[in-house]
Design a protein around this nucleic acid. Structure first.
Lengths: 331, 331
DNA sequence: TAAAATAATGAAAAGGTTTTCAGAAATCGT
DNA sequence: ACGATTTCTGAAAACCTTTTCATTATTTTA
């Protein structure tokens, strides 16, 4: 039923090989033949069978991406950028969202192995050993992109979470004797872990005790930010500043303050992380660490392409720029 | 280099066919052989070659989705739901974002044809004739999901944009003699067109003149909402209500009002569309037409699976529920 | 117990490409 | 004008599965 190269060949009166050559822009076919074949391809509305091609060439033109959280605008910006870059090189993105479930992640890695993806991008919240091992065994060119990796044989692209958190800490210590933190899930997020590290570094540097009651665990949602703000403000009567590990939680925290007539930034300063578009359009506008999803995506793809081409990649851990942007939610 | 079924077969001391049978859970292989083969598969870490399988079976286990706007949380919710449902049936999602470019869309349809996707979901902003024709020619089971389609041989799943806009109109006419609209791009969005139709219906029903100056064209971004609010408020001194065709634009409009000390809802009521999570966390909270991305995704997949299984689908145009939710931004 | 049915296995074809190898036709150099 | 290149084309193998058909071994039936 479906039209194959064979049909094209016989209709055009040439051999299979010739048709294939035309399709792949081989130089060794005469101009007239090329035209003739192309015309028949159009006439028959012939479509390449990518499975057959992939089988033969061992190239799938597929890049697998495993991520956590399609409700995360920053991640989606990065994904969009990845997709755009990929398409330019004729790669299609095959995306699997794990929702943070390890089992899902492993399942996806397996599926992607079977699909023989040419490259793999891991943007999961956490990098479990099982995941890393499964990826390593696969021998697929892979970029990790939620945080730093200490394994020298693996490549990561990420914002410098530690440094960024240190920047925020420095800024907030200027405003107040201490500040509270709305972090991500304790065991499930590299980014959260790293940002926490940055905070700890600064608390230590300034010799200030980082008490447990300064810290609340959220899960990167608006709602968890709202609830965390309530807890933190109740437990710390003189609290003057909160650092939330993403913008959604920061916005949730702001909402809690507004609902409870707590003045921002007069009574409390709030800083987020990511710099999503919405952070500019809430009132008060949100102070936040801006990182560009576009930057992340570009850097990921650039390096992945190098990796796939077996070129040397200069650095194990690549950082994208970040910038603390002060807006109305902090003073 | 790569391990194939042949390797498994010879190591396990059985034939190729037997290995294949074990992998595909055929009943006609003895218990012992099954165990033996499975063990060797584990030992060798054998992975199926999906290209070969797809070539042979003509089933790719791939579902193509073409969408516009990964920065649209509602769309992403739907996509997430699609993906979850798909995975349960062992389908992988291959997503292409067109950014509203027709050329991109056609390109993706072509790529997906070549990849021999088993099903196709079109969530682009607009359904151009070219796109529709290309899809039709492909003979791939397809669901359209941004708006209603009058072609009886195609299936669409969408919120009832017309009815929803009528609901909002009725509500706003209760508040004020007229209201302004922030719509989507003129030619590029079915949803916008349909919602506009709903508005027009009600203006007509109540015999009110829908003046051009009541309408501003946005592009579904925060920023365009902000700018549109400025234009509308400047051109209509006694304006009491604005209907924005999505939540982002509504939030942008709110921001403009707050920036300019225009009281919401006392001086102006604002209603959005979609009911994204953020609409609950801005201040004032946003009145909006809620539709569930989850509903949309489920309904799409359910019908797509039926379509792919050649089952009859009862309805050409399937509507998912919507609900006008009144919050603080309107009275 | 012999014939018939069932269960388990293997050999081989088919699916649609790409690519190597060989060969024919055309062009070149001298 | 002849052999040597160069240009173009075709035949056939290979990629890795699934599946049909045939075959052997086992169990059932009368």
């Amino acid at each position: 039923m479906t039209i194959t190269m064979k049909d094209v060949a016989s209709k055009a009166g040439v051999s299979l090989s010739t048709v294939s050559r035309v399709i792949n822009n081989s130089t060794l076919v005469s101009k007239e033949t090329t035209i003739k074949v192309k015309k028949t391809i159009d006439q028959l509305d012939y479509q390449i069978n990518d499975s057959a091609r992939a089988l033969r060439t061992n190239i799938s033109n597929l890049i697998g991406v495993i991520g956590a959280g399609m409700d995360n605008p920053f991640l989606m910006n990065a994904l969009k950028s990845i997709e755009t870059k990929a398409l330019k090189k004729n790669y299609n993105i095959i995306y699997g969202d794990s929702d943070g479930e390890l089992e899902q992640e492993l399942y996806y890695v397996n599926m992607f192995k079977q699909k023989k993806v040419d490259g793999l991008i891991i943007m999961t919240a956490n990098f479990s050993d099982e995941l890393i091992n499964s990826v390593k065994r696969s021998n697929i060119s892979t970029i990790f992109a939620s945080g730093y990796l200490d394994q020298t044989d693996l490549l990561s692209v990420t914002v410098n979470n530690i440094k960024a958190a240190e920047d925020v800490s420095d800024y907030l210590f200027d405003l107040s004797d201490y500040f509270a933190i709305i972090r991500g899930p304790y065991n499930d997020s590299v980014a959260s872990k790293e940002r926490m590290q940055g905070v700890k570094n600064k608390y230590k540097e300034y010799n200030i005790d980082l008490k447990d009651k300064y810290i609340s665990e959220g899960n990167f949602t608006f709602e968890s930010g709202y609830k965390s703000a309530e807890i933190l403000l109740n437990n710390n009567k003189d609290l003057k500043a909160i650092f939330a590990f993403n913008d959604q939680m920061a916005i949730g925290a702001i909402k809690y303050c507004l609902d409870n007539k707590i003045k921002i930034p007069e009574e409390i300063s709030i800083v987020g992380f990511d710099g999503i578009e919405a952070s500019k359009y809430i009132k008060p506008t949100l102070s936040t660490v801006f990182q560009s999803g576009n930057d992340l995506g570009s850097e990921i793809m650039e390096n992945l392409l190098k990796l796939m081409a077996d070129e040397n990649v200069e650095n194990d851990n690549i950082f994208i720029p970040h910038k603390l942007i002060i807006r109305e939610s902090s003073i």
